[in-house]
Design a protein around this nucleic acid. Structure first.
Lengths: 144, 144
DNA sequence: ACAATAAAAGACTTTTTTATCTTTTATTAA
DNA sequence: TTAATAAAAGATAAAAAAGTCTTTTATTGT
């Protein structure tokens, strides 16, 4: 579904958002712990998220990553996914056809159209805030 | 969604099924052409499909691959997918958690449960016959 | 029996993804 | 203004996925 990189990115974003709700800025080490990802690789991912303005980064002592509450209420999961995996998951054919469409449909075109639409709707409507609250409240988890 | 290998496998299976409907046994070269896949790699994939009894293979002159009409009416797409990618797509967590469940849910557990169920239903109910007919009738395509 | 055909099997190679290590840049506080 | 901290950037490395090439085995028609 998502690349591993993208899974880490989503989890990291949600974790940072939940910590930001408690006014806590978090560092790479902390993030890597929280989402069980390799630390250095997590750093790389954070660079991408930061460049794509999914999270804000602050260098130096007491630095780290954060997402303003106002921002996380706007940021959709789709933006995180696009930053890492592009928009393949939103657009591309389930069987890998380059020009799969109503005019040139693969054998599963219609069936997949529905599934893709559901995935798109989920990712385009869910904000980081939406999912961060559940984590902050201990209702959902990023490990195991 | 699926690995490239699995995409090829699904397309190859559908192509073989549609040709079998016309009593035509097809070889690797033919299959590779029909689904725009690398020939040698297609051979490897056919070995797996053959071992998993998705298709029947015949060696020697006039050999190739085929699927009996009675068999293709039983074979679900899910069996092709399982043969190539295992059952990750049916089971695994969207965010990669190993023990994602109602008791230890990832932040997207419920949302993904629905999507996974839809994918599973599609793959578990659609037979090769169902999709082969559309291809045989020129209504669907495996290229471009 | 033998030549031709076609898949199976095995050993490799290439590419992509995932992951690490080192150096540089920015920020802070003493 | 310097030492400490933490992310950014760059260069590699390891693992997995995708793809190729060569040899072997099975089948068929002559």
């Amino acid at each position: 579904m998502f690349s591993k990189t993208c899974e880490y990115a989503i989890k990291a974003s949600i974790y940072i958002a939940s910590q930001s709700l408690a006014q806590k800025r978090v560092g790479i080490k902390d993030i890597a712990q929280a989402i069980e990802s390799p630390e250095a690789f997590t750093g790389k991912i954070m660079q991408v998220l930061s460049k794509n303005h999914v999270v804000a980064s602050v260098k130096g002592p007491h630095g780290g990553f954060e997402i303003l509450e106002s921002a996380m209420k706007e940021k959709k999961l789709a933006e995180v996914v696009r930053a890492m995996d592009g928009d393949d998951i939103f657009k591309s054919c389930g069987l890998g056809l380059k020009e799969c469409s109503g005019a040139n449909p693969c054998p599963l075109h219609n069936q997949f159209a529905k599934i893709r639409a559901d995935i798109t709707k989920l990712l385009e409507t869910t904000t980081l805030y939406d999912v961060a609250t559940g984590l902050a409240d201990g209702l959902t988890f990023l490990k195991r």
